[in-house]
């Protein structure tokens, strides 16, 4: 096995530029994720917000961050992924029902 010997290492320039641009998008979303994390920890560490405000904001920040992961890092936004996305929304829906059910009506 002469590993890469017969593999053409040159990916065409157009593709390379495209990949590079995509990477830039990824770096931006990473920065946004870090910012979201910092805000979330900041809110709790500083105690600036009361419990009633803090919890919805924290959940919102988490959702935003996860959206970045799904759409950019995991390429859910790409064309041809519509069926995948549809099913993932289904999963999120089932998950939301589960969490709501267990969180809200267990102790009633």
């Amino acid at each position: 096995m002469t590993d890469n010997a017969n593999t053409n290492n040159v990916v065409d320039e157009y593709q390379k530029t495209k990949n590079k641009e995509e990477l830039k998008g990824h770096l931006i979303s990473f920065a946004m994720m870090i910012v979201a994390t910092l805000i979330a920890f900041g809110i709790v560490a500083s105690g600036v917000m009361g419990k009633i405000y803090a919890i919805p904001v924290l959940v919102l920040l988490a959702v935003v961050q996860v959206a970045f992961q799904f759409y950019y890092f995991m390429h859910l936004k790409e064309k041809g992924n519509s069926m995948t996305a549809l099913l993932i929304y289904g999963g999120i829906w089932a998950a939301a029902l589960t969490v709501t059910g267990l969180g809200a009506i267990t102790w009633w």
Partner: peptide, 23 residues
């Protein structure tokens, strides 16, 4: 595609754990 669907299932799996934890 199959692995994405598996992750969809994992979402519900962790949701069940989160729900248990929250309660």
């Amino acid at each position: 595609l199959g692995f994405w669907f598996f992750l969809g299932g994992e979402t519900v799996l962790f949701a069940s754990l989160f729900g248990t934890y929250i309660s």
